[in-house]
Structures are given as structure tokens and as C-alpha cells.
Design a protein around this nucleic acid. Structure first.
Length: 543
RNA sequence: GGGCUCGUAGCUCAGCUGGCAGAGCAGCUGACUUUUAAUCAGCGGGUCGUAGGUUCGAACCCUACCGGGCUCACCA
């Protein structure tokens, strides 16, 4: 397993493929490539954190596409200190008293999980399951308490001076004013009596640390060989874990990516103390949210999480979004009208990806579309050029029809099957999209976009010149209990040609049916409603 | 102040290790169709932030500058 494990395929040309190639070049002899993600569950794990996970997942897929065995680990940094009480959490007073403890030891204020950290972790792990992301989850607090990192801690303590010099060198290089003190130890942790993190240490050179709690005054000799509440500070913890897990690839937020930043110093520490090299790295930019109005700020503390995104985006569309942007591009997840455009872009990409290649210029675009879509696919699959794409009902069209059926997804599906627009085989996918469309219509769509068919008829005083057209429309509907959209389109056309001013007439009809003066294409609306439902709304006004 | 990163069409972004600037949307024109406009055909649109350099050849590599973002904690 050395050198090129597989001839470079020009089609494997996505940024995740490049990252995979780079990783393989850096580790030509490794049998099983370890890729890692790591996040602190110190608050709601949001869509920005998700970028870390999806980035690793995409690179993992790219590595597997090269025939490499991959281990995808996800480290939850839940031995982190609880520093800030989230504003939207219940039991503010209780939480206030827990500040300084490990988030794995702070009670869950929502009362549904074993700890504050566990609550945030569970929510996120559940949310990414539909996306086909299945890492091996690792809980830091368990690893530390089980003594897994004991040797790593001892190495750090015994080499405290080396680490201090490395960190100080970085500070010097970046012009920082302060320096680390000579008696500093690369150690942190929690008091076994009060649980808080304000500690002083004295190291014996082997496995025992004298711990003094500056908070409650507790003194204790802690033997960390078989696990304890001691841990390494972040800048040392990260490289220690690289060495422990033999991590070959791990991305980082742009906040880690600068000189003197944690990746930079970790690089030196892992090399000098832990005998491993820093993983290949991709820096990713932030993800923001756009167009959710006031909806979010109250319920989610201003943070968009994966669950919220999946209410509007199909799993594969969400993956496709993240796969499409280069990691270092900042972008916003949209909940406004952009959603329609994004679905349209996605649908077009699907069609393009399935087209057969013809040797022309467009092949490159077909390949890009195909590769991006493969990486986005849930479940993972490859796409054959020239194969039949799945049938996808356009978002906009679906929103219209779905509203006509008042959100009844099964009935809407039946309708599309009946019209021939939807093969029965693609029904599951259709229902997934329909749920997203309906959520969007209900929660985010502008008023202009929304309508509902009247449940109770109203009787209007119809203007003289509109009575005859209305009578004709009613006759048309009475004549055929199940007209198709095309049938009705033809009738509308006839009415128009016979001199009816449809521009003036339609608002009258829309008002009777929907309570507004505009609406979906009339023939579509009436065909879907069926005369049985439309007539009772129209007839009373005939007088 | 040091560093990283971005700057490409009106907008959002591609552009693989240097080889004729490119997609979608928006815009405009035409066709068809009577309603939140769909679909089809076509068109226009860029000094690739600025100025130098390397090269047969630069959006891409190097230098400087301008502008935006980020970063440089006994925090993860």
C-alpha cells in the first residue's frame, strides 16, 4: 500500500477528493485512515458545527472511493467547563450554581437526559441520523475518567517545559504580550469535592498530582493512572488525541486556522511529544441563516440547528448544499424564497448528473454534477451516466398542489400518480419532499404564496357583467365530474375567445374559492379541487 | 502589530496542480400559454480588487498595496 493506490480519475475531482488525495499522500503506509471531527456540546450544536461533521463525512466517502478503509471518529468534548448559562435554558438559577463544573456533570435543565452535555449531544446525534452520517462517537469525559489518556497526560506533564516553550514561541512569533509562567503545568480538571475547575497543581513526576481547589479549599493527591477528573487543556488535549487515535484528517473552523492558533501549536506538540504528525487540515468558514424571520430567535436562542434545516430541506438537498460550497466559502442557509431556487438548482443538477456523456464540453459539468451528487447521496450510491433520474416534483408546483389538498400528502401523491407525473416507485421520495414543502409553506412562505380553499361558502353580490361567465363556469363544472386540467384549460380558452374578460372574471372566482383575488392557475386549481368541491362554493352566488 | 483567508458578470458561486474567462438566477428579445406565471428558443453582460514580477502563456505562482472576514487567552 504505497504510492498511488488508485490511478487518478479525473472525475474524482471534488474538493473532498482533493482532501482525500492529500491525506493519502501524507499517509501512504497507513492501512486504515482515521478521520476525525470534534465539537464541544456546551450549547445547542448548530448548523455551523454541522459543517465540521459533513466535511469529514464527505472526505471519508472520497477516501473510501479510493478503496481505503476509513475510521470516522467524532469526539464530543464534553469534559469542557460549563462557562455560560444559555439564555433560553430553563432553571437559570440552578444552572448559575453549576458554572465551573464539567458540562458532563451539570444536570440537564430540560430533565430529559443524564446531563446538560448529554442533552445537547443526543439532540445533535439524532438530527444527523437521517443524513446518513454514522461516525463512531467518543465522549471525552468517559475517556479521561477511564484513564485512556493517562499516558498522554503523563507525557505532557513530564514535558511541560517543552510544551511551554512551544506555546511561548508561538506567542512570540505572533507578537502576543504575555508569556506562560515557568511553573505552569499543562493540566486542568475538576475538584472531586465541589466539581469546579479552579485548581492548583503540584506534580510528582509520575502518576500523582497534588490538587488544591481554590474554590472549596479541598486538598487531594490524585492518581490519574487509571482515570480521574484531571484533563489536558485544549491546546494540548487536541494533539494528544491526534496521537492517541492516529488521526490523518481533521478539519477546523476558521478560528483555529491562523498562525499561533490551536492547530498551529498542536502541530508542534504532536510532533515533539506524541510522536505523530498533525492531520491533514481543511479550514471551513461559518454558516449563517437567512430568512427565518422572528421564528427562531425565541425558540432556539437565535441558533439554527440541523433539525430546523431538515424541516425544509430534504437530507440529500442539505448535503448537496454543503458539498457544493468549498469549505472556505461562507454561506447562509436560506429559509425564504431562495429555498425554491435551491430546489430548482438541485433538480437540475440531478438531471444533469444522469445524462449520458457525449464527449463534448458539457461532459465536465456532467461529471461535476454527478460527483457532487454522489457525495451528497443518502444512502450513498453511485450514479451511472445515461441512467434514469428519479422523478422529482418541482418545489413550486408541489407547493401549489399541496395547498390545494390542504397539506394532505397522501392525497397529493395520489393526484400526481393519477396525472402520470409521479411513478409509484418514487413515492417515498415524493413524500419526503412534500413534508418539506408543507413545512416551508406553513412556516416561511410569504403571504402571497399561501392560500387555503374556503371551508364555508360565501354568497357574494356578483357584478352584472360577471354573472353570465360565472354561470358558464358552473355549467362546465356540472357537465363533467372529473375534468382534467387540460379539459378545463380548453374551456377557459373558449370562454376567453367568446369575449369574456378573464382578467376581470378570475378575481371573482378566486374570491369565492379562496377568499383572495389571485391564485394558482385556474384550470389546475379546479381540476384538483374537483367540481364536487368547487360547485358548492360557486353556486350560492348565482342567486 | 503578526498571521490566515477571501475579492471573478447585477446577485450567488464554479474555475481541477498555469493553456481561448463559466454556470444558475436576475435582465432583455421572441414564441406559446389566459393568473402567485410555467415552458421553449435566443441575446447582452467581466480591466478576474490594484500595481508590478516570473513565464511562450497567469484568475491561478511571487511581491507590494487596497478592501472585507477571521485570528493571535493558564477557553474548548
Amino acid at each position: 500500500m504505497t504510492g498511488e493506490r488508485r490511478a487518478r480519475d479525473p472525475y474524482l475531482n471534488h474538493w473532498a477528493d482533493h482532501a482525500a488525495d492529500k491525506t493519502l499522500r501524507a499517509h501512504p503506509d497507513v492501512k486504515r485512515i482515521v478521520v476525525a471531527a470534534g465539537i464541544t456540546p456546551s450549547g445547542v450544536v448548530h448548523i455551523g458545527n454541522f459543517r465540521e461533521v459533513i466535511t469529514v463525512d464527505l472526505v471519508a466517502r472520497a477516501l473510501r472511493a479510493r478503496g481505503v478503509e476509513v475510521r470516522f471518529i467524532y469526539s464530543w468534548d464534553d469534559f469542557d467547563v460549563f462557562r455560560k448559562v444559555p439564555k433560553d435554558a430553563p432553571q437559570q438559577e440552578m444552572l448559575q450554581g453549576e458554572l465551573g463544573k464539567s458540562i458532563a456533570d451539570v444536570p440537564d435543565p430540560w430533565g430529559t437526559h443524564e446531563s446538560y452535555a448529554a442533552h445537547n449531544i443526543a439532540r445533535f446525534e439524532e438530527s444527523i441520523a437521517p443524513l446518513g452520517i454514522e461516525p463512531e462517537f467518543i465522549r471525552q469525559h468517559r475517556m479521561y475518567r477511564a484513564g485512556k489518556y493517562a499516558a498522554g497526560i503523563r507525557s505532557a506533564l513530564q514535558n511541560a517545559a517543552v510544551i511551554r516553550d512551544l506555546l511561548n514561541a508561538a506567542r512570540e512569533a505572533t507578537g502576543a504580550r504575555t508569556r506562560i509562567a515557568d511553573d505552569w503545568l499543562p493540566l486542568a480538571g475538576f475538584c472531586t469535592r465541589c466539581g469546579k475547575d479552579d485548581l492548583s497543581f503540584d506534580y510528582d513526576g509520575e502518576w500523582t498530582v497534588q490538587v488544591h481547589c481554590n474554590g472549596c479549599g479541598h486538598d487531594e493527591a490524585v492518581d490519574f493512572e487509571n482515570g480521574s477528573d484531571l484533563k489536558l487543556p485544549w491546546r494540548v488535549d487536541w494533539p494528544m488525541r491526534w496521537g492517541y487515535e492516529k488521526v490523518c484528517f481533521e478539519p477546523g473552523g476558521k478560528d483555529h486556522s491562523s498562525a499561533g492558533g490551536s492547530y498551529d501549536t498542536a502541530k508542534g506538540i504532536v510532533r515533539d511529544i506524541y510522536g505523530w504528525v498533525a492531520p491533514e487540515y481543511v479550514g471551513y468558514d461559518f454558516v449563517s441563516a437567512k430568512g427565518q424571520g422572528g421564528k427562531l430567535s425565541s425558540s432556539k436562542g437565535g441558533v439554527v440547528d440541523v433539525t430546523t434545516c431538515l424541516e425544509v430541506y430534504e437530507p440529500e438537498v442539505l448535503r448537496w448544499l454543503f458539498a457544493g460550497y468549498r469549505p472556505n466559502t461562507e454561506f447562509a442557509i436560506s429559509f425564504d424564497l431562495d429555498v425554491i431556487k435551491l430546489y430548482e438548482d438541485y433538480d437540475r443538477t440531478v438531471r444533469l448528473a444522469h445524462e449520458a456523456e457525449d464527449g463534448g464540453k458539457k461532459d465536465k459539468k456532467r461529471q461535476t454534477a454527478r460527483r457532487t451528487l454522489e457525495l451528497a447521496s443518502v444512502p450513498e450510491r453511485t450514479i451511472e451516466p445515461g441512467s434514469t433520474p428519479p422523478t422529482l416534483i418541482a418545489f413550486r408546483h408541489l407547493s401549489t398542489v399541496l395547498q390545494t389538498f390542504d397539506g394532505d400528502i397522501a392525497a397529493t401523491g395520489d393526484y400526481f400518480v393519477a396525472t402520470g407525473e409521479l411513478p409509484e416507485a418514487d413515492r417515498a421520495r415524493f413524500e419526503q419532499r412534500a413534508r418539506c414543502v408543507w413545512n416551508w409553506v406553513e412556516q416561511y412562505a410569504p403571504e402571497d404564496f399561501r392560500y387555503r380553499i374556503r371551508t364555508e361558502p360565501v354568497t357574494r353580490d356578483i357584478p352584472e357583467d360577471q354573472r353570465e361567465p360565472l354561470r358558464r363556469l358552473v355549467e362546465i363544472l356540472r357537465a363533467d365530474a372529473n375534468p382534467t386540467e387540460t379539459d378545463l384549460g380548453g374551456k377557459m380558452s373558449e370562454m376567453s375567445k367568446s369575449g369574456v374578460d378573464m382578467k376581470a372574471f378570475f378575481p371573482v372566482v378566486y374570491d369565492l374559492l379562496l377568499g383572495r383575488d389571485r391564485g394558482p392557475k385556474m384550470s389546475t386549481l379546479l381540476a384538483i379541487m374537483t367540481p364536487a368541491k368547487a360547485l358548492p362554493l360557486l353556486e350560492p352566488s348565482l342567486g
